[in-house]
């Protein structure tokens, strides 16, 4: 079986017409877009929670932490019910499209990114608080400097989000439908091959997913390292 997995992996990589790159590309596009949108929302939400005090703040905090453990299937179901033709947003015609998958993954990872970034921003913001007060910085300038100085830690948060979204199958298979050439991504393809009993193919796809995750993480941690060496500590 090991031989078979290796040869399947190589065969997959060699045969450009296997649709592999299409599936890989869609995975990256869907998860990448979801992470970008989640970061836009999550960093703002995390930043607000980290730097302001208001009623209900700790309730939101608890809710965010709890929703980090939300099963992807449940998120998928919620999005399915919203986007279904019989649901409130059915008129958009988004179910079984990559957009629906992006929406589901955005909902899935925004709490993760918000909760993790809140912790990072709050720690740094508190650390800088007295110095910034002494400098008489405006609230906006304090936030800007904190976010900038936390950027590499926040990049790690984004990577955690990318990891969760690239690896989840529960949400995308429900709202995407695993349609060939349209909404099939790495994880749903793996689920399909598993259900066909083609385990070597499923594992070959898994190996490719892992390789991609390794590549992305290596690239970003190299970037991170060189940046740290330069000025960030």
């Amino acid at each position: 079986m090991q031989d078979s997995i290796l040869s399947r992996t190589l065969w997959l990589l060699k045969s450009a017409d296997s649709g592999l790159w299409e599936v890989v590309g869609l995975s990256l596009r869907v998860s990448g877009t979801a992470v970008l949108i989640s970061c836009a929302f999550g960093f703002i939400l995390g930043g607000v929670l980290a730097t302001t005090r208001f009623r209900g703040r700790s309730a939101i905090h608890i809710f965010l932490n709890a929703s980090m453990s939300m099963p992807p299937v449940v998120v998928g179901l919620i999005v399915y019910m919203l986007l279904s033709r019989s649901g409130p947003l059915g008129w958009l015609g988004l179910l079984y499209t990559p957009t629906a998958m992006i929406i589901a993954q955005t909902l899935l990872i925004t709490p993760l990114i918000a909760a993790l970034s809140r912790q990072i921003i709050e720690d740094l913001f508190n650390e800088y608080a007295e110095q910034f007060a002494s400098m008489r910085l405006s609230f906006f300038k304090k936030i800007r400097a904190t976010l900038w100085d936390a950027r590499f830690s926040l990049l790690t948060v984004a990577l955690a989000g990318l990891g969760r979204s690239l690896s989840e199958v529960g949400a995308v298979i429900i709202v995407g439908g695993n349609i060939e050439h349209l909404t099939r991504v790495m994880t749903t393809a793996i689920a399909l091959e598993t259900s066909k009993g083609d385990l070597p193919m499923a594992l070959a796809l898994g190996a490719i997913l892992l390789t991609i995750a390794l590549l992305i993480n290596t690239l970003l941690s190299m970037l991170n390292l060189s940046a740290r060496r330069f000025a960030y500590a």
Partner: peptide
């Protein structure tokens, strides 16, 4: 830069959505 990317991402979303229906 982040804002720009978000805008681009949103634009891409709508392109995807419209191309499908």
């Amino acid at each position: 830069m982040n804002n720009n990317l978000t805008l681009k991402a949103l634009a891409a979303l709508f392109t995807i959505a419209s191309s499908i229906s």
